[in-house]
Design a binder for these strands. Structure first.
Lengths: 129, 129
DNA sequence: GCTACAGGTTTACAGGCGTAGTCGTTTCGG
DNA sequence: CCGAAACGACTACGCCTGTAAACCTGTAGC
């Protein structure tokens, strides 16, 4: 059955991810503050944010702590873990788990700026040491 | 509003993508041949494959051509376009459109094999020229 | 003290997705 | 020539997702 390690467990949807980004940027934070940050950009209403927050809480990737009579929300997973997991998923799904083809793909579609190239080169030198 | 070239248009789901991989590997191909290739691995039944194929046809990413009494299916989009698009989506969504952080992330999570590193280095040298 | 508001919880609902059964027709083996 | 197998089309259905309204409760201001 390939049980999850149970740490993350649940998948985070795209809308939920947008909320996570706000939490990673600033936390703990109240639902209305989250809304102040994204409701305008995503054209959401407060109920939508509340729903997403509670789904994230259910999925155990966000925790709550009471502040006065309301809640403050705080992410329970690291952004780097999430980002790493998603990256790996993509690499596994599309490139057979190999990163080099991804790199080649990005290069080919001109998604690599000179700046990117320089940084990657630097990282490579770093790792080679 | 940065409209897509409009070629693909519709999103391809994960199950659909599995079917696409089969089509990219060999085409044109009949529904039952697709099933022969993946039904075992994904534990699917023929109806499932047929449904996915027709959804892909609806989404206009797969085309059909009659072969005798049945259909043969053939992808209408290039795998490299799909893969490139998905890669870019990830980079945009998680790394602000910059590839270097993705690379750093993969490096950090030890998702880069020595082989990957060597290939990437080679690609870099190639591009620098 | 009572009402309006803020905030959390519950319910809603349409559309997409995973997975598959049913139906009607054609065809092929016998 | 007939029944079974093969096919594509249509239907099904429960879960997830995006988006939000309704509801309940406590609190704070008047």
């Amino acid at each position: 059955m390939a049980k999850r390690t149970d740490a993350p467990g649940e998948r985070i949807s795209e809308a939920e991810h947008a909320v996570m980004e706000v939490l990673w940027d600033r936390n703990p934070i109240s639902a209305s503050d989250v809304c102040d940050t994204i409701c305008a950009q995503r054209d959401w209403s407060i109920p939508t944010v509340k729903t997403l927050l509670s789904r994230l809480v259910q999925k155990q990737v966000v925790g709550t702590e009471p502040e006065g009579r309301k809640f403050l929300y705080r992410p329970l997973i690291e952004r780097s873990d999430y980002v790493g997991g998603e990256s790996r998923r993509l690499v596994d799904r599309l490139f057979g788990g190999r990163a080099a083809p991804l790199f080649a793909q990005l290069a080919e579609s001109e998604a690599l700026s000179d700046e990117d190239l320089a940084e990657i080169e630097a990282l490579l030198r770093e790792m080679r040491k």
